[in-house]
Design a protein around this nucleic acid. Structure first.
Lengths: 263, 263
DNA sequence: CCACCTGTGAAAATCCTGTGAACGCAGGGA
DNA sequence: TCCCTGCGTTCACAGGATTTTCACAGGTGG
């Protein structure tokens, strides 16, 4: 969101976080180019912040990012202004003061519709080690060969890969892949991790992808074979990790990170 | 629009006509089924007209017609009501009295987004394997012989072929071919896929076109018979795919997935 | 060394798809 | 008006594929 009304921003940010959204606050115009890079679902903007560049800015944003939900929220405005904004490409126009809950609901409505349009929704393929994970095919590939994952297997893998480097708790994984809360004592996650490991192992034997964190859950992090997982120094040299980003960013400070390689 | 406020309705109708829109006025709830038949871009509704069925009605309309722009316009309302409406699936919520020009602008904003989702119907003929799919005839041909597809069969085939290579979920297929949300447990898509396969098989026995992805949906990808699909690494070509052209020797993309070829 | 966790393999329970046929509806023709 | 035909929808069943559940073995932490 682009706004300077710190009270409104703060409240909204808090509620957004609570709802599980990720949001970023800016106090001035952000170049459309940068907006693209941010991969936003929606943008909430108060044109008052933009000064007399406002219309131009809205126009540019709307035309450069036709799939971005664009919501204007500002003080008093005339019908003519609202109509102009909407015609320019804004999806909604709210008047301050407005209830944060309503702002969220409108942002949600706008994003929902946006998402629906793009049926190629999460069509961003992920690359990890020798793996290529393609949501458009609900399948993962190693050297163009399909791993033949079932739907659940794929969704689990995709989730883990999306959160590459993060340790995810079983409950969290279950919640996000199965869509509802995990029953006490359910071992489904473990079983599917085993199935995944088996297929990964058979297609990409020289890499280790899924690591166990005892008492917690799992972490996805492609590692070429050979590192014995004694201690991991801040990235001396990875044999090859083309699009590996943020490698040294986080020293796995946590306890031990045993990586028992399923072997 | 569904409203009884004749003044508002009349003014709006006149402006809408002037803007080149077609609009129909109702004074009571219209069954979602009928809405489907009306092929609407957007629906403006005053829930006050619907009495205590309002929420239920909104819910049903929104879930049955996810692609319909749904705008609520009513008298005073609480934040909670607006939030509820928006969460239920409404795309916008205006408060009366509202300027007709703004109402139009909002309807337009909502429809614009809706339209954007739909790919522009180019009506371009597609070629795939031995198939030639011609939207201008609502028919597919193999060596200039018509497959004698019915309307639904054709539309299903065309949709699949347009998204060649992509796995489409049943819900999505249904949504896009039938025009409204698929009811739980509906098997129509399967039945039509079977009909298509039968006709395709009889006209082009040496090719396989429609692949099943268990638990997900279907994928259209013409493959000449006989490929056992162990591993295929042809040229590592990119999926540029401008328009399908006669691929007499096109190396079918990835490996197999289950392609249980009905036999 | 003990209590707990996780890896494994296989059996049991579910879910999904292919298939053939019945049903209802609407249009055309007699 | 009645009958016939084509088309889309719905049903029930069978064969598989996939998920869950179990019991047990082995590893981990304290």
């Amino acid at each position: 969101m682009i706004d300077t009304d710190s009270g409104f921003v703060t409240v909204l940010a808090r509620r957004a976080e609570a709802a599980g959204w990720q949001m970023s606050q800016k106090t001035g115009p952000v170049p459309p180019r940068d907006l693209v890079a941010m991969k936003l679902n929606a943008l909430l903007v108060d044109p008052a912040v933009l000064g007399d560049q406002a219309w131009d800015y809205l126009d540019r944003v709307a035309s450069m990012l036709p799939d971005l939900g664009l919501v204007v929220c500002t003080g008093r405005s005339t019908v003519a202004q609202r109509v102009r904004g909407l015609r320019l490409g804004a999806d909604d126009w709210m008047t301050k003061p407005c209830h944060p809950e309503e702002a969220l609901a409108r942002l949600e409505a706008v994003s929902r519709r946006r998402r629906r349009g793009r049926h190629e929704h999460e069509a961003a393929p992920l690359a990890a080690g020798e793996l290529e994970i393609r949501p458009d095919r609900f399948q993962a590939f190693v050297r163009d060969e399909a791993l033949d994952l079932t739907r659940r297997e794929f969704e689990l893998l995709y989730l883990l890969a999306e959160e590459r480097g993060q340790v995810l708790e079983r409950e969290q994984i279950y919640q996000r892949v199965w869509g509802y809360a995990m029953a006490h004592g359910d071992r489904s996650v473990d079983v599917f991790v085993r199935k995944l490991r088996k297929k990964l192992e058979s297609f990409s034997p020289s890499w280790t992808y899924i690591h166990t964190h005892f008492g917690i859950g799992y972490r996805f992090d492609p590692e070429p074979a050979g590192i014995v997982a004694e201690e991991i120094h801040p990235a001396p040299e990875q044999p090859e990790a083309p699009q590996a980003d943020e490698p040294a960013a986080e020293p796995p400070s946590q306890a031990v990170h045993n990586t028992f390689t399923a072997g």
